[in-house]
Amino acid sequence: MKTLLKRTALAAMIGLSTPALASVAYVSNEKDNTLSVIDTETREVIETIDVGQRPRGILLSKDYTKLYICASDDDTVQVLDLATRKIVDTLPSGEDPEQFALHPNNRHLYIANEDDAIVTVVDVDTKDVLAQIDVGIEPEGMAVSPDGKWAVNTSETTSMLHWINTETFEIEKNIVVGQRPRHVEFSKDSKIAWASAEIGGTVHIIDVDNLEQIHEMSFKVPGVNQDRVQPVGIELTSDGKYAFVALGPSNHVAVVDAQTYEVLDYLLVGARVWQLDLDKDEKHLYTTNGVSGDVSVIDVQDLKVIKSIKVGRYPWGVVIDPTS
């Protein structure tokens, strides 16, 4: 709240065109080369920002002043200043950056270079490339554990989770999972990692202390062919209650009990649901639906879909700025 006030006051003083004040969600539109900015109060698109080519993964800096954008076809990571909503900088990223993750130190950005089978680590302050780590074919998902110890990359064609030691930048363990692993999400205490396998149709639960799989989940959406149940994005509530799993072309989000790994419900959203993000107080979950070109809003309390918001073509990533 403080940051918001400061930023607003500053903008007002300098007399910049002030962006709307409400809490906002940013959505990358892969085929429009834009970001849609959604006001989370009115749940409407309030601005569309031109960015680089084929924007996919997006994430916020730890101080919530910047948004990093993988502009895959421009082979770069763009930096959007959230106060002005202007692209202010670019970072070296290696070829075809798709997803990335920021270390809690707010400096080391781990970027999956999909076409090169490499993970690039960039210091966002100095723009130095700290390491390039050989991984499997089509590195995709990237996650850094909240305690900063591990960076995990999923390689889609190799079907592995590569566990990278964040001090040495070396792979310490490879865990084979289902076909086409897409995304990794850590529990808040860094003890459990959830990894989705899109073609395998599974979610793998990894015990981080031992780096062993402790559970494998599968999904059955009533009336949907099993081949089309394809887990992609995962989002966990911080109270450890729920995991939400986007199930791709089945057009459903699974609600999972994060303790027992039991599926509680399937919620119908837009077509080919990809990524998810919770808002600040975790009352609403936003999903990007690639094929239908919209964002679904789920009420977390009632577990009901309450709205769909039209955005650009092939919305890919979504993040909600908790300070706005």
Partner: peptide
């Protein structure tokens, strides 16, 4: 593709 996986 196989070799990249195989090296791990």
């Amino acid at each position: 593709d196989n070799s990249t996986t195989g090296k791990f």
